[in-house]
Design a protein around this nucleic acid. Structure first.
Length: 543
RNA sequence: UGGGCUAUGGCCAAGUGGUAAGGCACCGGACUUUGACUCCGAGAUCGAUGGUUCGAAUCCAUCUAGCCCAGCCA
């Protein structure tokens, strides 16, 4: 798979020039939510860059803020990454480095590069200035090194209440880059940490912790998204002033955006917490667990990510592209079977009552390796309601209609003669006659049918539930409407219909339903009923 | 209005001075026991303007538009 983006070029240049002998990358999720498609880009990119150049790839949980994080996410994140096929070489936690971070902070204080500030959060904000106004130095900025040392140690020893003081880097309060206006690097926060328990009551801030984590692990290229570009000078400042031996390089790439979908963790969380969806693994979500449950193969996700490249531009990719990559993956790989989602009974008047034929049927016409199977056929069958109309509407109609002959795929030509309706005028039965000379496989070619439709035998079948998914969110443009009110009430439509009798799939198994789409067996299936998720429909040039 | 970044057909994206790859979508057409698949074909002068050059999407200048930054979040 082609990966010739600008980051790849930088890496190859670093290898060629001898700057690095091996490439070490990392994926540093914060364990505070589930992974989504956007993370997939980061994971796959980091993994691929390391593996392609013979290096290694670390998974590191960026757990520097215990009040926001939870172990429950750790296992889910690991599962998602493994599912994507990006097995990490090392598993680390930022919290493993708390001690070293603390020592390096001490070093900064001793070098006169950091100070303890007693300003309240509100005051810090005031002193920081704004986008066009330079900040002012904190009155505590010129404390002596000794005093700073004592106070910072005091912070660590738990002598001060939460939020009463912070450690700040001494950089430049007038810098046009807000990140350099004496950034806070340690805060006091008495919270139980999932990894370090109650050992610490001070926790490092991301901007301080991250470069140290990278340097400790010898990360050569620290990839992140565009919003951290402004943080790079601070990243470099920390590496240099903390005197880290290894010098990782931060490189930023654009975030992934997908049309007609929500990708932000906080938006997805709203949907989950609001009970709008089943959970983080709802098939309508583009979380990795949601995509997995829906039936999307991980290879398709990787191809999709590669197909997009790794730009710094800020576009939004149409979801159709993802869907097409998924189809491309499934078309040759999965069996093509039959299902009827909205059944209409077809009675073949001249077919003997009680007789059953088992007809030969390929599992995938374009992939013989998938073998054959037999499907039953008898006097009563179900076809899709949308495959019949009383009067053929136009020349392009390639389905059944009164007086029209079509082929029931793998079986015979049938011609519709009359219908039976209920009191409300709904068609409940279509009566037709079949021509026994037209049996599939017989080589009959004296007439062309008006199309080919599929069917499920009227009694030899199993009932199934089909879940069809549509856009979760509508009205993306309207910024006035609260996000949660934009949820599409028809984002999931459930149909009860029939599936072939002799196929007994496992959860997660994927199929193409002829003339309909790709489906996967959902975990809600049970002995009484199969439940299928529609992964993606077949392309339709009619309708 | 301070700083950082981005700008190639409807969407994504190659291209880094030599005369616009590819994918998705769309529109034609062929094939077809899935209106699927497959296969042909159509479609941009590169945000704007001005300059440098024999020659520019690629270099320079100016402008315009969009995104990000004022957490003791990551």
């Amino acid at each position: 798979m082609e990966t010739s983006h600008f980051i790849n070029s930088i890496i190859e240049e670093d290898l060629r020039s001898g700057k690095h002998k091996e490439i070490i990358t990392r994926f540093p999720p914060e364990p505070n939510g589930f992974l989504h498609l956007g993370h997939a880009r980061a994971i796959i990119t980091n993994y691929t860059m390391a593996k392609k150049h013979g290096g290694y790839f670390n998974l590191r949980f960026d757990d520097t803020n215990p009040v926001k994080e939870d172990v429950s996410f750790v296992d889910a994140i690991k599962e998602d990454i493994a599912w994507l096929g990006c097995q990490w070489d090392n598993l680390y936690y930022a919290s493993d480095y708390f001690n070293e971070m603390y020592e390096r902070a001490l070093l900064l204080v001793k070098k006169g590069k950091a100070y303890v500030d007693d300003l309240t959060p509100e005051e810090i904000k005031e002193y920081r200035g704004d986008l066009t106004t330079p900040g002012k130095n904190s009155p505590y900025r010129n404390r002596s090194i000794e005093e700073n040392l004592e106070l910072f140690i005091g912070m660590k020893e738990g002598q001060f209440p939460d939020g009463s003081r912070v450690l700040r880097a001494i950089i430049d309060m007038t810098n046009p880059n807000m990140n350099l206006r004496d950034p806070v690097i340690y805060r006091i926060q008495r919270a139980h940490h999932h990894n370090t328990g109650d050992t610490w009551c001070i926790y490092p801030m991301y901007d301080y912790a991250h470069p140290i984590e990278d340097a400790i692990e010898g990360i050569t290229h620290s990839l992140c998204s565009l919003e951290f570009e402004d943080h790079r000078p601070l990243y470099d400042w920390v590496v240099e002033n903390c005197e880290m031996e290894a010098v990782p390089r931060q490189i930023e790439f654009g975030k992934l955006r997908i049309s007609k979908s929500v990708i932000g963790k906080r938006y997805i969380k709203q949907l989950v917490d609001g009970g709008v969806v089943f959970g983080w693994d709802d098939p309508r979500l583009i979380t990795l667990s949601g995509l997995r449950r829906r039936g999307v193969p991980p290879e398709a996700i990787r191809d999709f990510i590669f197909a997009l490249g790794l730009p710094k531009s800020q576009g939004e990719t149409e979801i159709d592209m993802l869907e097409q990559v998924i189809r491309d993956h499934l078309v040759m790989e999965v069996p093509r079977v039959n299902a009827v989602l909205e059944p209409l009974k077809l009675v073949i008047d001249n077919y003997p009552e009680g007789e059953v034929e088992y007809l030969e049927c390929e599992n995938n016409r374009d992939n013989e390796a998938l073998g054959n199977r037999k499907i039953p056929f008898s006097k009563y069958v179900y076809i899709e309601q949308e495959d019949f109309v009383e009067e053929k509407p136009n020349k392009k109609w390639k389905r059944l209609a009164l007086g029209v002959e079509v082929r029931l795929m793998h079986a015979y030509f049938v011609k519709a003669n009359h219908v039976v309706k209920d009191e409300q005028g709904n068609i409940i039965e279509v009566h037709c006659t079949y021509d026994k000379d037209t049996k599939s496989g017989s080589g009959f070619d004296l007439r062309k049918p008006n199309g080919n439709i599929h069917y499920i035998d009227g009694t030899l079948n199993q009932i199934a539930e089909f879940r069809l998914f549509d856009d979760l969110i509508t009205d993306f443009e309207d910024k006035e409407i609260p996000f949660i009110e934009k949820v599409n009430p028809n984002s999931m439509v459930v149909k009860q219909g029939y599936f072939e009798k002799d196929i007994h799939p496992e959860i997660g198994d994927r199929f193409q339903f002829t003339r309909n789409g790709y489906y996967a067996v959902d975990k809600d299936s049970n002995k009484e009923k199969l439940v299928f998720n529609r992964i993606v429909s077949l392309k339709a040039t009619y309708k």
